[in-house]
């Protein structure tokens, strides 16, 4: 009897610890002047001839600092992230459901319905990350359509109803082309309603 209780308590403890150790997205963005950007990043951005309205952003994600340029290019909304030294980290393109390869949305649907009672994708981006084995991959490679040098993932933001609790939650998922989860982070919402009661 007592062994059963200990096993039950340990199981409960493990589940609680697992829930507590869930990664939380802690990202802060701040607009900065162009001259704050690393030179190497600016060189890559200068190759864009018809990018409209480039926003220069300094991003802090936990302990990591990066520089992000957001702009519209060929009717697509792009955000390009650089390391502090100016090395390209990833390129994210805002897409809609119809921008996904055939069959992938159905896999996402299966995955999320397995995890949650209900979900809604609130933001979806295709992420191009320099592929392993390729060095010196730059923004220019993306612009020249050398996409084989990139690893493609999908970054999705979701509003969900948690399983069995009816609670509402917000998550960010990084999922590869086989619908395998690469990263899952809970998003902690700040007060989004600025009308004080």
């Amino acid at each position: 009897m007592s062994t059963k209780i200990i096993v039950l308590l340990l199981t409960f403890l493990m589940v609680t610890l697992q829930a507590q150790s869930q990664e939380i997205k802690n990202e802060k963005e701040k607009y900065v002047d162009r001259n704050v950007f690393p030179d190497e990043a600016l060189k890559q951005l200068d190759a864009l001839s018809d990018a409209k309205r480039i926003s220069y952003i300094r991003q802090v994600d936990g302990d990591n600092v990066s520089f992000e340029a957001k702009f519209k290019f060929n009717n697509k909304k792009l955000s390009v992230e650089f390391a502090p030294g100016g090395r390209l980290q990833d390129i994210e393109v805002l897409i809609k459901k119809r921008g996904l390869p055939d069959g992938l949305y159905a896999k996402f649907d299966q995955l999320f319905l397995r995890l949650f009672d209900k979900y809604k994708i609130t933001r979806m981006q295709r992420q191009y990350k320099p592929g392993r084995g390729y060095s010196g991959v730059s923004l220019n490679d993306y612009l020249e359509n050398s996409l084989n040098k990139f690893e493609i993932n999908y970054e999705l933001e979701l509003r969900v109803v948690e399983k069995n609790s009816n609670e509402i939650g917000h998550y960010e998922f990084l999922i590869d082309e086989n619908a395998e989860i690469q990263r899952k982070r809970r998003i902690k919402k700040v007060i989004d309603d600025n009308e004080v009661y």
Partner: peptide
């Protein structure tokens, strides 16, 4: 009926320590 619009003064999203106008 009230219609309101609010935007952070710096950044796309309102983070801690930041100002917004409404």
């Amino acid at each position: 009926y009230r219609l309101s619009y609010s935007a952070p003064i710096n950044g796309e999203r309102l983070d801690e320590g930041e100002f917004y106008w409404i």
